[in-house]
Each structure stands twice: as C-alpha cells, then as structure tokens.
Amino acid sequence: MDYETLDAEIRALSDRMEDADEATIAAEVERLKRLAAQIPDELGRARGLARAERLPELIVGPAPGTSEQYLRATHLLGIAMGSDGTPAERIDLAERTATEIALLAEAAPYRESNTILRMNSALARLIHELSAIPES
C-alpha cells in the first residue's frame, strides 16, 4: 500500500458514498485507516491516516460556519449580491463588501477563515459582470 493508492480509493469512495449512512461511512473510515497503517514510509502513513479520517467531510462537505464573522460575511454577501441600483453603485457596494469580508476572514476562527475569504470570489464575478454593462 502507498499513499497515492489510498488517496485514489478515498476519492472514489467520496464520490460513491454520497447517500451512505453514518455506520457505513464509519466502517469505511476504519478500513481505510487499517490500509493507511500499512504504508511503509512514516510521512505517507501519517498523511493517509489523516486523509482517511476526513472521509465523512469529503462525502458531506464541511459543516457550515457558525462564528459571528461567518454569519456577518454571509449576510453582507447576500446584500451585495441582491442589491439594486446602477452598475456603478452595485460595483461600489461589492468592492466595499469584499473589503469588509476580507477583514472578517482575518478575524474569524482558523477553520472558517478561508471559507469566508472565498465569498469574495462571488463578488469578484459580480464586479466583472457589472463592469461589462454599459452605463445608460
């Protein structure tokens, strides 16, 4: 067993087990951990064990954020994405929102900071789309 083989199996399982129950997923995690324990090099074994333990998250995705920063960023994103006004006004709001979301990401708990920061991708796309609209 090597890390690459284990990783390929974990990827395949994460796609196939979308509707699996918790007991089935837990059994697979234990089986994968036994396989990871067979990896001869220490670094590969450690990576394999960590990857096997993340199978449930790979199947269902990460838990939604719960921090004050996450909730505020989600609220701000919704306002900016649903705003009315001229393209210039909406771009201005989206840019201000992106700045505030970046600050919220810095202050957020580590496990949520990247998720919050990625919210700016939607704002960047919005700004790009609005920039293509000619002013009337």
Results as ranks from 00 to 15, higher is better:
1 M>L: 08
1 M>S: 06
1 M>T: 07
3 Y>G: 04
4 E>A: 04
4 E>D: 06
5 T>Y: 00
5 T>D: 00
7 D>M: 08
8 A>D: 13
9 E>R: 04
9 E>M: 01
10 I>R: 07
14 S>C: 02
15 D>K: 15
16 R>L: 10
16 R>D: 08
16 R>P: 07
16 R>I: 08
17 M>Q: 14
18 E>L: 13
19 D>M: 14
20 A>C: 14
20 A>V: 12
20 A>G: 12
24 T>W: 09
29 V>E: 12
33 K>D: 07
34 R>F: 01
34 R>L: 05
35 L>W: 06
36 A>T: 04
39 I>M: 01
41 D>T: 02
41 D>E: 05
41 D>K: 03
43 L>Q: 05
44 G>Y: 01
45 R>C: 11
46 A>M: 08
46 A>L: 11
49 L>D: 08
50 A>V: 14
52 A>V: 02
52 A>P: 02
52 A>H: 02
53 E>N: 15
53 E>P: 14
53 E>D: 15
54 R>I: 07
56 P>G: 15
60 V>T: 10
60 V>D: 07
60 V>A: 11
61 G>H: 12
61 G>K: 11
62 P>Y: 12
64 P>K: 08
64 P>Y: 06
66 T>Y: 00
66 T>Q: 00
67 S>G: 03
68 E>C: 04
68 E>Q: 09
68 E>R: 06
70 Y>R: 00
72 R>F: 02
72 R>G: 02
75 H>N: 08
76 L>N: 13
76 L>I: 12
77 L>K: 07
78 G>A: 08
79 I>T: 06
79 I>D: 03
83 S>M: 07
84 D>P: 15
87 P>L: 07
88 A>D: 15
92 D>L: 07
94 A>I: 02
94 A>E: 05
94 A>H: 06
95 E>H: 12
98 A>T: 12
98 A>L: 10
98 A>M: 11
99 T>K: 12
100 E>P: 01
100 E>S: 02
100 E>H: 03
101 I>W: 05
102 A>F: 01
102 A>G: 03
103 L>H: 13
104 L>P: 11
104 L>T: 06
105 A>C: 00
107 A>Y: 05
107 A>F: 03
108 A>W: 00
108 A>G: 00
109 P>D: 02
110 Y>F: 09
110 Y>E: 09
110 Y>H: 08
110 Y>D: 08
111 R>N: 09
112 E>P: 04
112 E>R: 01
112 E>M: 01
113 S>D: 05
115 T>L: 01
116 I>V: 04
117 L>I: 06
118 R>S: 13
119 M>K: 01
124 A>L: 04
125 R>L: 09
126 L>M: 15
126 L>G: 13
128 H>W: 10
131 S>E: 13
131 S>C: 09
131 S>Y: 10
134 P>I: 09
